[in-house]
C-alpha cells in the first residue's frame, strides 16, 4: 500500500517536472490567475487557463458563432482586468459591440479590424499578437493550417498575449498547434418555476483538445457577471482517460 502511494507521488512529481520543461509554470499565488471558468480550469495543465497561447473555437453556424462570441467575451472580462486593449479581426464581422457590455467587457476598448482577404487577417493577427500592449487578439477566419498556427503559437509564447481563432469552416478542419480547441453550442436556458421569458445564456462547452490537459464537456451559464456551472445535475466532470479523444 505504502509502495503504491510512493509510486503515485513519484509519478505526479515527474508530471510536474515535464510540464515545467514544456514551459508551463505552476501558479505562484492562490487563485489570482483564475479566469473564472470554475471546474473547467481543472482540465488545463496545472489547473491554470493557458494565457499566452492560441485557443481555437469551432463554429459553423451563426448561432454557434454568437455563443462562441459570448463565451470569448466572458474570458475577455478577466483578461482585460489589468487594462489593455483587444483586437477583433474578421472578414465579415457581425459582432454587435453593445452586447459585449453584458459580458463585462468595455466595448470601446476593443478595436475592430474588418478585412477583405484571409491572408491579411493572418498578417494582422501575427503583427497584433507580437504587440505586448494588447490583452487579447481575436481573429475570425475560415481555416488555419498547421504551419500558420505554429507561427502564431510561437509568437504568443514570446509576448504572452492570448489569441483566439474563431474558425467557421469545419470542412477544412486540420490539426493545429493551438493550445486548446473549443466548441461552444447554445443550450436551452433555464427558467425557475416555469416563469415566462428567456433565461441566461447557457452553453454546452466542449474542450475537444487541450495540450497536456484533459478534454471534457461541461454545461455553463453566464449569470451574475460570471461563468456558473449549469444548475441541473448533469455530467460536469472531465471525461475519463479511456474516453479521451486523440490529440
Amino acid at each position: 500500500m505504502e509502495k503504491a502511494a510512493l509510486k503515485k507521488d513519484v509519478i505526479s512529481r515527474l508530471r510536474k517536472d515535464i510540464l515545467l520543461l514544456e514551459g508551463y509554470k505552476p501558479p505562484l499565488t492562490g487563485n489570482s490567475n483564475a479566469i473564472g471558468l470554475g471546474l473547467i480550469e481543472d482540465a488545463f495543465p496545472n489547473a491554470v487557463f493557458p494565457r499566452g497561447s492560441i485557443h481555437e473555437f469551432l463554429c459553423d453556424q451563426p448561432e454557434h458563432a454568437a455563443a462562441s462570441g459570448g463565451f470569448i467575451s466572458g474570458l475577455l472580462k478577466s483578461l482585460m482586468k489589468q487594462g489593455g486593449a483587444c483586437l477583433w479581426i474578421g472578414l465579415s464581422r457581425t459582432i454587435f459591440p453593445p452586447a459585449l457590455k453584458a459580458f463585462g467587457v468595455e466595448p470601446d476598448r476593443i478595436i475592430f479590424i474588418d478585412l477583405k482577404r484571409e491572408r491579411d487577417v493572418l498578417w494582422v493577427m501575427e503583427e497584433a499578437i507580437k504587440c505586448e500592449g494588447l490583452a487579447a487578439v481575436i481573429a475570425e477566419i475560415e481555416a488555419v493550417s498547421f504551419t500558420e498556427s505554429r507561427r502564431l503559437q510561437l509568437a504568443v509564447e514570446k509576448s504572452r498575449v492570448t489569441g483566439f481563432i474563431v474558425r467557421n469552416d469545419l470542412q477544412k478542419l486540420s490539426s493545429t498547434a493551438c493550445a486548446a480547441r473549443w466548441k461552444i453550442t447554445p443550450l436551452p436556458s433555464e427558467i425557475d418555476n416555469g416563469l415566462p421569458g428567456v433565461g441566461f445564456p447557457k452553453w454546452n462547452v466542449e474542450l475537444l483538445k487541450v495540450k497536456n490537459g484533459n478534454p471534457g464537456e461541461w454545461k455553463m451559464e453566464w449569470s451574475d457577471q460570471g461563468f456558473r456551472p449549469s444548475r441541473e445535475k448533469a455530467l460536469n466532470a472531465p471525461l475519463k482517460q479511456t474516453e479521451r479523444k486523440a490529440g
Binding site: 476593443i110 478595436i111 475592430f112 479590424i113 498578417w123 503583427e127 497584433a128 504587440c131 500592449g133 494588447l134
Partner: peptide, 26 residues
C-alpha cells in the same frame, strides 16, 4: 496597459499602412 498606449498606436499605424486606415474601427 492603456488603450492609447504608444505601442498600440504603433501597431495600428502598421496595420493601417498595410490594409488601410478605414478598416480599423472603434
Amino acid at each position: 496597459k492603456q488603450l492609447d498606449d504608444l505601442i498600440i498606436a504603433e501597431l495600428l499605424d502598421k496595420v493601417a499602412g498595410k490594409v488601410g486606415a478605414h478598416n480599423i474601427r472603434r
